[in-house]
Design a protein around this nucleic acid. Structure first.
Lengths: 225, 225
DNA sequence: TCTAATAATGACCAATCGGTCATTTTTCGG
DNA sequence: CCGAAAAATGACCGATTGGTCATTATTAGA
């Protein structure tokens, strides 16, 4: 009862516990990237994590709890990346286009994480999910500011989320990142045009987003070097 | 060796075999609509189908083969519905919009089948999949005929498939079919505008598709009865 | 160094898994 | 009515499953 009611300082014990927990999360992420939750056994997880079976239940009540934590972790990382990219961006159109690019880039660079996330979130792609709250806010603001035209919120949300989702899935398959950057740019263009931007405007915004986020994406019209 | 090399005519034996096979497919479909393949045991399937375990392996090599057949069955049904709705339709824009509506209606009316299909196809949503060959053809023709403008085939395909996919997923959650029809109409509008149709044109085509396919979808502007 | 608390361990369990196969039931040709 | 072929059956098998728990190893504090 010395140091208040805080039995744990930041000692080695904490670090040890944190290490095995991290190993379990990492192993789960790796395995969930390949198989469904039911297709991975606890034995598989602890074997990959190089941890005793009992330790698993010392950290998580069951497999699903681990899966939820894995998904939450990756989701938070993706949200942070989008937030960072859009920190100083006001234009809702550019924000949406950049979000698309960030998701695509994230999928290309961290395929394992994204694979796990998509598998664990499969079917849970409701527009009202907290995961999509950022896009929802951008869309609402864009509608309010007349940046987007003739867009109802439910339909607009579905369009954006559906596009982002399939783009991420596609990014997991692509080989050359160049093609990916072009794809994200073209897809962003179609998306923004769908949301009501004029074609010229959509081209400019989508191109700018791709240039900013995906290094290898050039502008739509080639220029002499 | 009597009746040529055809040991089976169309007798009761055939029908008996067909019935247990159908029972297995139906049970698999029902269960795969709720859980992943690895989350359903063969015992579950044969119990639901009211069939002995041995009979299962009399028809399918393993669980995955059953899953493939279930997916193929539902996929074929969906394709047939789209094909029928678009039989006499030439305009690629209208064909795309109607396909969207048909998929949404199918999901609303046969949620179990669509749930199973989406779960079994999760991750296999490549644009080059045979499932999407119809949409691909429509898109290609629309581009060639300048019905769509500034659309690259890869990006256009992703936009359409992603939209259809998330619309189906949404249809599985919706309660009132009226809202669904409106959603399909609005989403079709955004999709067509993204593909390059003028806003007025997109409104007209999406509205027409919704009116044709989804009975409860009125035109965008209410009219006096 | 000693002790209490905490975390890691892996042997162990009953239940369930995918898959097999000898047997019984049904159907068909004659 | 009689075999023979085809199909359905369910008891059975070894492997694997999710989950437990008494034991051991590590750490923190005195």
């Amino acid at each position: 009862m010395r140091a208040a009611a805080r039995p744990l300082e930041n000692g080695k014990e904490d670090r040890r516990r944190a290490r095995t927990r991290a190993a379990l999360l990492q192993a789960g992420r790796t395995l969930f990237a390949e198989c469904a939750v039911d297709g991975v056994s606890v034995d598989d997880i602890v074997l990959r994590a190089d941890v005793a079976k009992g330790s698993f239940y010392n950290h998580f009540a069951d497999k699903d709890e681990l899966a939820r934590h894995v998904a939450a972790e990756v989701r938070a990382e993706a949200e942070a990346l989008v937030g960072a990219a859009n920190r100083a961006v006001a234009d809702p159109a550019l924000r949406v286009a950049q979000a698309l690019c960030v998701f695509v880039q994230f999928a290309a660079e961290r395929p394992e994480k994204v694979r796990a996330l998509m598998r664990l979130h499969s079917g849970a792609t409701l527009p009202e999910a907290p995961f999509n709250s950022g896009v929802r806010a951008d869309l609402q603001r864009g509608i309010a500011e007349r940046r987007f035209s003739d867009v109802t919120l439910p339909a607009g949300l579905l369009l954006v989320i559906g596009t982002v989702q399939i783009a991420m899935g596609r990014a997991l398959e692509a080989e050359r990142p160049v093609a990916l950057a072009e794809l994200a740019r073209d897809l962003g263009f179609l998306l923004l045009r769908g949301l009501g931007l004029a074609a010229k405007d959509a081209v400019a915004v989508a191109g700018r987003a791709a240039e900013r986020i995906l290094p290898s994406a050039g502008p739509r019209t080639r220029r002499r070097p």
